[in-house]
């Protein structure tokens, strides 16, 4: 069924130009994820293939409310941006094999699934925030910065809930709600980063470009937390 993921990526690539193709891409990727879930008997959230595909789906899903919002509905630039984001993350999933191994007992809990799913929703919103930040830097429109702030705030909320559910899972699974490994370090950095970003808004109007840049850089921190740490550093969350 990997072909369905390929088709969805193709639809995303053209979805920037036609909204219906983007929606078809979302539907296709959701079917692919559901099929993976049925095959595995759980949410597909382990290993680089499944997590990147889940990330791509999350990017597309989280973009839907923004695409429906009156201020961004007709923005070609935004639609092209989210289509590329979903397509690129989907493309990154393709070279990795889709493992069908049984769930390790330690991961077999709803707290784990909640923890990971919420984290990816947050990552996706941080990605959308970065796109909106880029749009604001090109053409300073207030509604774009407001939308970026909304994306970051909702993402931060998902991320906070993910950290809480991760702590609960860790407590029952590992005996501790916290481990000092690179993943936890960078998770904290990401959480503090967006906490700082959200406070920057209180500094006033002259900080608007810095806020927009903050959203762009934040996605870099997000990607390092997700992929950089998991691939390059030895951690409790290594692939």
């Amino acid at each position: 069924m990997k072909w369905l993921l390929c088709v969805s990526i193709g639809l995303y690539l053209f979805g920037g130009f036609r909204r219906s193709l983007f929606f078809a891409g979302v539907a296709g990727e959701l079917v692919y994820m559901a099929q993976r879930g049925i095959e595995l008997g759980r949410l597909p959230l382990i290993g680089p293939h499944d997590t990147l595909a889940f990330f791509s789906t999350s990017c597309a899903l989280m973009a839907l409310p923004f695409l429906r919002h009156k201020s961004l509905r007709d923005s070609d630039r935004f639609r092209i941006g989210v289509s590329l984001l979903a397509a690129l993350t989907g493309l990154m999933a393709l070279p990795f094999p889709a493992f069908n191994m049984p769930m390790p007992p330690i991961l077999n809990t709803l707290w784990f699934e909640l923890h990971v799913a919420l984290a990816f929703f947050a990552y996706a919103l941080f990605g959308i925030g970065a796109l909106l930040g880029g749009m604001f830097l090109l053409k300073e429109e207030q509604y774009v910065l407001d939308a970026q702030n909304t994306a970051a705030l909702v993402g931060f909320s998902f991320f906070s809930a993910s950290m809480t559910s991760g702590g609960i899972w860790g407590y029952y699974a590992w005996g501790t709600y916290w481990l000092w490994t690179p993943k936890e370090f960078w998770t904290s950095i990401l959480w503090l980063y967006y906490g700082t970003y959200l406070h920057l808004r209180l500094k006033g109007q002259k900080w608007e470009r810095a806020i927009a840049w903050g959203g762009v850089i934040g996605f870099g921190v997000t990607m390092f937390t997700y992929l950089g740490v998991s691939l390059l550093m030895k951690s409790s969350h290594s692939f």
């Binding site: 000092w180 370090f185 960078w186 904290s188 950095i189 503090l192 906490g195 700082t196 550093m233």
Partner: peptide
């Protein structure tokens, strides 16, 4: 302070 904490945590991670 938040920036300082983030930098030190990043150093700690490496």
């Amino acid at each position: 302070l938040l920036c300082g904490v983030m930098l030190l945590l990043a150093a700690g991670s490496f």
